[in-house]
Structures are given as structure tokens and as C-alpha cells.
């Protein structure tokens, strides 16, 4: 297990290298010129050329990649073209709101989602199942940005219960976490329901029942534990998706997080920031995957780790 873990962690290094190259090529190959964005529209051709030269954009692409890689190895992510601040400093500043948001969204949606899923599966075909699945389906059917705007209108503007956005108090996080978590809650509810149903139909559950164990115990100890495998996969998959979701949510709720930084930087062709962020997201995603894979083994003894 320990060796497996070390092997997997070391295995991510070449992966990250490949990703860093892909990201670099992607950002430099898509149309766009950060120099024009930096200099503004009124800049003359000569001014643009001066700026291009001083930024090192006239060097061959491979040289630019190697100097980027060199900086990266030395822990230097570069300076943002847009704000002239160090990229690492900007990212740290933006990480906090996104982490908080993701945490709250994951927390409530996991609890509520699994609860709905299990309750629905146990009460299959009854009203409670029906209600649960309706909530779940609504959760994935509603466009997040739309829900966010509507909730701002109702709870902030009309009722004045919570701020429209920002990150000043804990109350600022209520609406965005609800909006962001909706999708996961729904997906979790559906998945935990279907995998619970699977487990409930399995032989070992029937056996447990036949042995006369209490129903609640059967559900929790046998069925639920086994359905966790798929559920954990889904949570893992969805946390990566949360960052994408947070792009829209952070815009709607005026939260200066990583998602918005990414979209804004991409629009500005702020290469250094986009590269750093994409690399960070990739790393984060790989890490989560690794954890999911390891949990697999812990939760389902039928899958053995090599």
C-alpha cells in the first residue's frame, strides 16, 4: 500500500510535465496577443513592438517554454501582465474564497445528497423516494448561473437577508454554496440511490437479512458501505467539476476566487497566470484522483491493489 502510494505520487511528475507542455502550447497557440491588451487600443505599432521585445515575446517559442520551465522548477511562477503582481501572491489571495466556497458546497451537498439517496432507495417507490428524486432532478436541471441570479433577487434584494456577494461575512457564502452544491447534491443523491439499490439486491444483503439482522443495520453496515465505492468516485469526480462550476458562480456572486481569475486572465491572455492556474488545477485533480483510487481499495476489498 505504502509503496503503491509512493509509486503513484512519483508517477504524477512526468504527467505534470506533459501537462505543463500542453498548457504552454495551448495558451500560446490560441489566437490573441497579450501585448495589445496591455498597451490598450490607442497604442501605436511602434509602442506595441517595443513592449513585445521587452516582454521577450520575440524569442522562439521553445526558448520561452524552457525559461518558463526553469522558473517553474525554481518556484517562480512569474509576474502577471495585468496587475504586475507576482502570480503566486495573486493565487494565494484568490485561493481562500474558492476553497471556502468549495468546502461548504461539498459539505452540505454530500450530506444532503447521500441522505436523500439512501432514504429514497430504502423507501423505493414510495412518496419519499419520489420527492427525493424530484429534488435531485431539479438540482441538476437548473442552470447554476440562473439560480444564483434568482436567489440574489429574492434573498438579497427583496428580502435583504444576505449580502448579494463578496466575501465579507460568513453569510456571504450561503447563497453561492447553495448554488454551487446543487448539482453535486443531485448527482450524489441519484448515484447513492442507484448503488444502494444495487447493494440491497446483492446476495450478502439478502443473507444478512435472512440471518435476521435488524433492517437498519443491514442497510447501514452492508448495503451502504458497499454503495460507498461508487459514491466516493462520484464525489471525487465532482470536486474537480466544482472548480468549473465556480467560474460562473464566482462571477454571479462577485467572489474574487480562482475560477474568476482564470476566466479573466484567459480573456486578457495573461499567460503566466493562466499557466499557473491550469497547472494547479491539474495537480489538484490528480491528487484527488489518487485519493479516490486509494479509498477504493479501503472501501471495497474486492478490488485489490497491485
Amino acid at each position: 500500500m505504502g509503496r503503491y502510494f509512493v509509486k503513484r505520487v512519483l508517477g504524477t511528475i512526468p504527467l505534470l510535465l506533459v501537462i505543463s507542455f500542453l498548457i504552454f502550447m495551448f495558451i500560446h497557440l490560441i489566437p490573441g496577443d497579450p501585448v495589445r491588451n496591455m498597451a490598450g487600443r490607442e497604442a501605436t505599432t511602434e509602442e506595441l513592438e517595443n513592449l513585445r521585445e521587452s516582454m521577450g515575446f520575440n524569442k522562439p517559442l521553445y526558448q520561452q517554454y524552457f525559461s518558463y520551465l526553469n522558473d517553474l522548477v525554481h518556484g517562480d511562477l512569474g509576474i502577471s501582465y495585468k496587475t504586475k503582481l507576482p502570480v503566486s501572491e495573486m493565487m494565494i489571495g484568490r485561493l481562500k474564497p474558492t476553497l471556502k466556497l468549495t468546502f461548504f458546497a461539498t459539505l452540505w451537498s454530500t450530506i444532503v445528497g447521500i441522505a436523500i439517496g439512501v432514504l429514497s432507495a430504502v423507501n423505493r417507490g414510495k412518496l419519499i423516494d419520489y420527492l427525493g428524486m424530484l429534488i435531485a432532478i431539479s438540482g441538476i436541471s437548473i442552470p447554476g448561473f440562473w439560480l444564483g441570479l434568482v436567489m440574489i433577487q429574492i434573498f438579497s434584494v427583496k428580502l435583504g437577508w444576505v449580502p448579494t456577494g463578496g466575501l465579507d461575512t460568513w453569510r456571504s457564502y450561503i447563497l453561492p454554496s447553495i448554488t454551487l452544491g446543487c448539482g453535486i447534491m443531485a448527482i450524489l443523491a441519484r448515484f447513492s440511490r442507484s448503488s444502494m439499490l444495487d447493494s440491497l439486491g446483492e446476495d450478502y444483503v439478502r443473507t444478512a437479512r435472512a440471518k435476521g439482522q435488524r433492517e437498519r443495520l443491514v442497510i447501514l453496515r452492508h448495503a451502504f458501505r458497499n454503495s460507498l465505492v461508487q459514491v466516493v468516485t462520484v464525489i471525487g469526480l465532482q470536486i474537480g467539476g466544482l472548480l468549473a462550476g465556480s467560474v460562473l458562480i464566482e462571477t454571479v456572486f462577485t467572489i474574487p476566487g480562482l475560477g474568476r481569475l482564470l476566466v479573466d486572465s484567459l480573456a486578457f491572455r495573461d499567460y503566466k497566470v493562466v499557466q499557473a492556474l491550469l497547472l494547479f488545477f491539474s495537480f489538484e485533480y490528480i491528487l484527488i484522483n489518487l485519493i479516490v483510487d486509494l479509498l477504493y481499495g479501503v472501501l471495497n476489498p474486492r478490488i485489490r491493489l497491485k
Partner: peptide, 9 residues
């Protein structure tokens, strides 16, 4: 950045 949010504020 979002128009609706700005007006709401």
C-alpha cells in the same frame, strides 16, 4: 463584473 449583481448591490 455581472450587471445584475451590480444593480442588486
Amino acid at each position: 463584473p455581472e450587471d445584475g449583481a451590480r444593480v442588486a448591490m
